[in-house]
Design a protein around this nucleic acid. Structure first.
Lengths: 214, 214
DNA sequence: TGCCTTTTCAAGCATTTGATTGAATCATTT
DNA sequence: AAATGATTCAATCAAATGCTTGAAAAGGCA
């Protein structure tokens, strides 16, 4: 049982990812996991040490790559001292989620929910391995935004980045709820289109106050 | 013990509101509540029937008034067939939270967190007493927005209202986290100012695509 | 094959969970 | 005061929780 079938560890990871996406970090129990993964109850503790460490591993597995890719894209946009445009910066902030989905074997929909959970359930209480990269992202993007929009006070930049976070997190986690609520009136979600919609909204939002946009 | 001191029921409600705001709907246990409220474990079931019913009562207590006030403000803005402006509509959508805070004895900060929890923890799984009013709000505001911005496809209006939801929910729930993360760099939050900041951002966001806002 | 390590498993552990019980206490009315 | 109904309380329940155990099974290598 080496190449054929899936490792116990893999089975646990995949089941947990799905359960976390569907029900959130507070609601998933050890037995939910082992039942879904069809492994013994002891397997989680044997392979990961504890339930919490398993959760941390899943978060690191996907959130850190997203933050890395954000910084990479931002750096690419500001190479050689070039001033990155607002839209570029926002794209560097949001697109990495689209990129990271390929690392998992989940559906886009479920993966985005998992990312939304990571942002919202864990906000303000990030595991040690996630906090420093996250702070770096906030710092770098705040700085870049400040260069791109020198007229905006730093305070305003911070709040608007916060709003952007809200748009993104809510869409990741509850994008499907809108479709359910409106009974499909807001159509099939091409995620590329969805991303552009969020960027457009936040881009315009960042320019608020710069004369009547009408 | 009628007029002096607080009823057991009140003590439970107040403790639960605070705990829900701080830790979310999934994390608060019956014993957390009865310990904080300094009442017997059986009191919750005696006065509310069950833990879940207590949670529902708290949600109805505050969320329904907010939705009512939203509809009232929207109606006021469209009285006699007048076309409400985008900004008015957004204000009718968001200001009611500021209004509802007076109903509770919590601090603004804590009350907003509670509202954020109601939106985010419970999204997509609202209790029966909350779903119909909520649907009415989404319908009415979508309709009003469509009148205010007839150029925008309904699909776009729905998504941008969804984004607005995200901005609001994230700020209600995690507005304090931003202050913590930036070590106070984004200043003391006058909530009136905060509200205007969100309205400005979303207002501009709704106008995205209407020519370069620069 | 025999030996050793790694992995799996059923059973069980202590604790916590939401909820219930019946007796005791309190409040109100007669 | 007596009677009645509402409330509080300690004790307890069954179920669920995260985690551990020691033995069995599987895998790797001489």
């Amino acid at each position: 049982m080496k190449t054929v079938g899936k490792t116990t560890k893999e089975r646990i990871l995949e089941a947990t990812e799905r359960l976390l996406a569907e029900h959130g970090f507070e609601a998933v129990t050890l037995r939910d996991i082992t039942t879904a993964a069809e492994v013994n109850v002891a397997a989680v503790n044997y392979h990961f040490g504890s339930k919490e460490k398993l959760f941390e591993e899943i978060q690191c597995r996907y959130v850190n790559p997203v933050n890395d890719e954000r910084l990479r894209m931002l750096e690419l946009a500001t190479v050689n001292g070039r001033v990155a445009g607002l839209e570029e910066i926002l794209e560097a902030f949001m697109r990495p989620f689209l990129f990271a989905v390929t690392r998992s074997k989940m559906s886009e929909q479920l993966f985005f929910k998992l990312m939304g959970r990571c942002i919202i359930d864990q906000h303000g209480d990030l595991p040690d391995a996630l906090l420093p990269p996250f702070k770096k992202v906030v710092e770098s993007f705040t700085a870049a935004l400040h260069v791109a929009e020198p007229d905006l006070p730093v305070e305003t930049v911070l709040w608007r980045l916060h709003y952007t976070f809200g748009v993104m997190a809510h869409t990741l986690l509850h994008g499907d709820a809108l479709r359910r609520l409106t009974q499909g009136a807001c159509g099939a979600p091409d995620f590329e289109v969805q991303l552009q919609g969020m960027i457009d909204f936040c881009h315009a939002g960042f320019h608020a106050g710069k004369g009547d946009p009408k």
